[in-house]
Design a protein around this nucleic acid. Structure first.
Lengths: 107, 107
DNA sequence: ACAATAGGCAAGCACTCACTTGCCTATCAA
DNA sequence: TTGATAGGCAAGTGAGTGCTTGCCTATTGT
């Protein structure tokens, strides 16, 4: 189970490492259940990102592998939903011991 | 201020993208104020990571640039302290709207 | 002074990764 | 059925990155 968490954590942090993917998460936060083309046009219009459809598709695949995005198919449409739950392990990993400020200890 | 946050966020997530750097954060969570050599030996002994001192030094520089590690010099020693505060912007960015489960909306 | 310890700087290499290009399948409207 | 829309698969490319190697400075102990 520990090994499982480690692997998932790696996918999670690698998914968050790209600024375009973080913007996609922002867009899905603002409006859940968007299609690939809808995300593409939003990135192009709102964020002035000149990026191809295939690139966005690959980003969504990475986000889905990290568990941050869930998908559902309806006919020829594929809707993407945000799942922020995996982010909570970040908080639990380093913010638990002391969340009020920097720590001090004698060397 | 927004641009500043974006830049910092990029450094933050890129710093978290590497598994060795995350292990370093774990070690600093367990024991704050470690020197470079102490971190090196811990990575070697506890985590069986065959990694050079220079590599660890470069990792620490990345973590410091991201604001996750703060340093203080005393003579020939340089102590490293964890600062988990920057992690909170992750929570605030995507966990604020809904932290209980996946969202639903009509396409 | 001299050696050992703690750390820093910079160039080079190998690998990863984001993106493009090209072509393919599936669903829907006319 | 035909064309248009929504999406998928795979190979190639260029930039970024983790790590090594080699050499350097600063502080401390004898």
């Amino acid at each position: 189970m520990l090994a499982y968490c480690v692997v998932v954590a790696d996918d999670l942090f690698k998914a968050l490492a790209d600024p375009t993917r973080r913007t996609i998460l922002d867009e899905l936060t603002e409006k859940s259940g968007q299609t690939l083309f809808e995300i593409c046009s939003r990135l192009s219009m709102k964020h002035r990102l000149g990026i191809s459809r295939q690139a966005v598709s690959q980003h969504l695949a990475v986000l889905e592998a990290a568990g941050l995005v869930e998908t559902r198919r309806e006919g020829r449409y594929k809707f993407h939903d945000l799942n922020a739950a995996p982010l909570r392990q970040i908080v639990e990993r380093w913010l638990v011991p002391d969340t009020s400020g920097p720590q001090e200890s004698a060397p």
